[in-house]
Amino acid sequence: MKQKHSSIILEVAYRLLIPVLIVFGVYVLIHGEYSPGGGFQAGVILALAVILNRVLEPADVKKNYWTYKTIALAGMGPVIYMMTGLLSIPFGGHFLEYGLLPLPVHEVERHLYGILFIEVGVTLGVMATIISIFDSLGKVGDPDERGNLL
């Protein structure tokens, strides 16, 4: 936001596209049970927003280049998934049996909340992994001689 971009297309892409991508990603995540969508798609869309930011603002990204923290965030995804699965075991269920989750709703609705929880885990894992692979491939820390990333 400090300097203007070189062309109007990049400016519009930065100001308009990234917020829409983030909102659409969250919508796809929480509406995935009723329409096409789900954890993977939401994760990839959220990762697209971050990658667009990295491509358009190389100077800002240089400060935020924490690949090992991204890997740690990616590891949180399977952990959330497994915790949701393990949560029903003390209440007499099997691993990943959503019908016995300790929630004060009807049993069919507990399935919905269980699906939502694990999809949050999938979204975190996929998003952080894709960002991490992009960072590692492009090595965002060192742009080439002219300062371009791509």
């Binding site: 096409p36 969508g37 990658i51 491509v55 090595k139 791509l150």
Partner: peptide, 23 residues
């Protein structure tokens, strides 16, 4: 569902290809 996933993932795939070919 599969079409949505493919449409979104092809974008990421092309980004990977371009940035790896630059490298």
């Amino acid at each position: 569902d599969v079409a949505f996933t493919e449409a979104v993932i092809s974008v990421i795939s092309i980004a990977y290809y371009v940035i790896a070919i630059r490298e």
